[in-house]
Structures are given as structure tokens and as C-alpha cells.
């Protein structure tokens, strides 16, 4: 039986629903030594800003129970170097390249989106309004419905590309932000970004991370992510890209059933660099064994009727 893994995310056709999450897959090339990148549904590159950024001082990462904290602070090469040094390679790939963008002001987001719109080889923009590790921008826009609306609306007017908006879990009610982003013209929603957290060294009584707080990712956050994907899928009529602690095919299936149309693999890339391609194979097998012709049928297929 031939299985159709392809999905449509707000007008963007992906050969399969498995992408790699921003900040966990470099600019793609780093992983070409481990896998055929063309097997992926897409690659979301490291968060990009107009100007290069050094990011936060070290230490920046620490392992915690079933996960890790990071406070990279959006270190990135900046727009000019991205276009010159990173994009030409990405263009050679037969997979969707999604650029995760970040700015300190609404105008910075909009300008970045506009300048990227002139470049070939970019399938969509993912607007990061959810980074917990930078002082200005990031979460400052993602925790408030009006600010979220302002950023997304500004980017929408300056770019024709499919627009995904990446939401933060560090909010009281994710559905209000989801609705704002939808109203402002988002084509899809990605969630979740990391949960703000902290670790302390009891010998020195210092925070382990120089930034004091960081973003929690990995298996520890999967139940929270699933719940939020499910809530967002109920609240808005947009495709949802599910992210958070996905380590294997079963995890990916849970997100699809909860309402995600596609998924992103993050922290798992560090532990097993070929996780994402293994999930593509796993999804194919699951469909074959369950006689499912189109994987997209699974999206939102959660059974909530009364138990027997």
C-alpha cells in the first residue's frame, strides 16, 4: 500500500509532516553528515535577527530531569551572513526551508520579513514571539495578545510568504494569543517554545545558567505541549505545528492526534541526530500497518466520546 505522508500547512505543501525545530538543527548542514536532509518535511533554521547577535554569556545549557535548560539568547549570524553563507546551501536541498525570525521591535520583525521575502529558497517564515531568553522582543510580544497582534500584522503587510507564528507556553491562556495571531493574519501556529525554568548549584548557591533563567525543553515538557496543541487546535481554524519533547514516532503521533498537522523535533536532535528521519520512517510504517492512506487523516482524530 502506498502511503501519502504529505501535508498542507496554510498553503505550503510539505512532503511529510516532520520538521526540525529552530535552534536545535543549526542551519541544516551540520546534520548532513548524519542523514539525508531531503528526507525531512522541512528544516526550521536558527532564530535570525537583522544584525548578528552574540547571545548570552556562558554557561548557557544544563541538563535537568528529563530535559534541559538553555539560555542561548538567540546568538545568530545576522541577515546578511545568513543570505550569503547559509542560504545557498539550503537552496540545494529538496526540503522546505523555514526561517525563524526575531526582532527587538515590531519594525525590526517587519523589516526582516520584508528583506527575506526578496530571497529565493525560503518556503515560509516562522515568527518567534516566544523566546524566553532575550530581554527585549521575543516573549515580550508573545505574552500579550495586543503585542502579538501588532507583530504578526506588521509582518503580514510586509511579506507574502506563508507565516507561521511560534507561541510561548509561558502564558495564562494560550488560546487568547492563538486567536490574536490568527486575527492578525497568521497562516499557521507553531507551539510550543520552551518553558521558563531555572537550576541552582547548591555548592556555590549560584544559578547554573549565567542568564539565571533558561528555557526548558525535552521529554519533560511533552505533556504540557500536547495539552496546548490540543487547546490551540480547538480555538483556531489554522494548521498547528506541534513541538515539545518529541523523541520518537509515538510522540509524533500523539501530537498529530491532538490536532497538529505537522511536528518539529528539537532537543532529540542532540541525543540522536537522526531522530527526525527515523520518525518519517516510523510514520510510514504506522500508516501501512493501520491501513491509513493519508497521514493527514490522523490530525485532530482524538477520540473523546464516553468510554465503554
Amino acid at each position: 500500500m502506498s502511503v501519502d505522508l504529505s501535508v498542507n500547512i496554510g498553503g505550503l505543501h510539505l512532503k511529510n509532516p516532520v520538521l526540525t525545530a529552530s535552534g536545535t538543527f543549526g542551519y541544516g548542514r551540520e546534520f548532513s553528515r548524519f542523514m539525508d536532509l531531503n528526507a525531512l518535511g522541512g528544516i526550521v533554521v536558527k532564530g535570525l535577527s537583522l544584525e548578528p547577535s552574540r547571545g548570552n554569556p556562558p554557561p548557557r545549557v544544563v541538563e535537568t530531569a528529563s530535559g534541559m535548560l538553555n539560555a542561548i539568547g538567540l546568538e545568530n549570524v545576522g541577515l546578511a551572513a545568513f543570505i550569503k553563507d547559509k542560504l545557498p546551501y539550503l537552496r540545494t536541498l529538496d526540503t522546505a526551508v523555514i526561517v525563524n525570525i526575531y526582532g527587538q521591535t515590531v519594525e525590526a520583525y517587519a523589516e526582516l520579513a520584508e528583506r527575506l521575502s526578496d530571497c529565493d529558497g525560503i518556503a515560509a517564515l516562522e515568527v518567534n514571539i516566544s523566546c524566553p531568553n532575550v530581554k527585549a522582543g521575543g516573549i515580550a510580544f508573545g505574552a500579550d495578545p495586543q503585542s502579538a497582534h501588532a507583530v504578526v500584522a506588521a509582518v503580514r503587510t510586509r511579506s507574502q510568504r506563508p507565516l507561521w507564528v511560534k507561541l510561548s507556553p509561558n502564558v495564562t491562556d494560550v488560546t487568547t494569543i492563538a486567536r490574536s495571531a490568527a486575527d492578525a493574519g497568521a497562516d499557521a501556529l507553531s507551539l510550543i517554545n520552551t518553558l521558563t525554568g531555572m537550576a541552582i548549584d547548591v555548592e556555590t548557591r549560584r544559578p547554573v545558567l549565567a542568564n539565571v533563567t533558561g528555557g526548558l525543553s525535552g521529554p519533560a515538557i511533552k505533556p504540557v505541549a500536547l495539552r496546548m496543541v490540543w487547546q490551540a487546535a480547538q480555538a483556531v481554524d489554522l494548521p498547528i505545528v506541534g513541538i515539545g519533547g518529541i523523541m520518537n514516532t509515538i510522540d509524533a503521533l500523539e501530537f498529530l492526534i491532538a490536532g497538529a498537522a505537522a511536528i518539529q523535533v528539537g532537543t532529540a536532535n542532540f541525543i540522536n541526530p537522526s531522530t527526525a528521519v527515523e520518525i518519517v520512517d516510523g510514520l510510514t510504517r504506522y500508516c501501512e500497518e493501520g491501513a491509513i492512506r493519508r497521514l493527514s487523516q490522523l490530525t485532530g482524530s482524538l477520540v473523546t466520546s464516553a468510554r465503554e
Binding site: G23, F25, E30, F31, P58, P59, M68, N70, F270
Partner: peptide, 17 residues
């Protein structure tokens, strides 16, 4: 030495001054 998550240039966690 530095704290490392990936060891291959993907996470940018192992920054050194």
C-alpha cells in the same frame, strides 16, 4: 571544557568567552 548539549555545532550551548 564547556557544558555541551550536542557536540556538533547545532545548539550553540558551548560558547566560550
Amino acid at each position: 571544557e564547556s557544558m555541551m548539549a550536542c557536540g556538533m555545532g547545532a545548539c550553540l550551548g558551548c560558547a566560550l568567552p
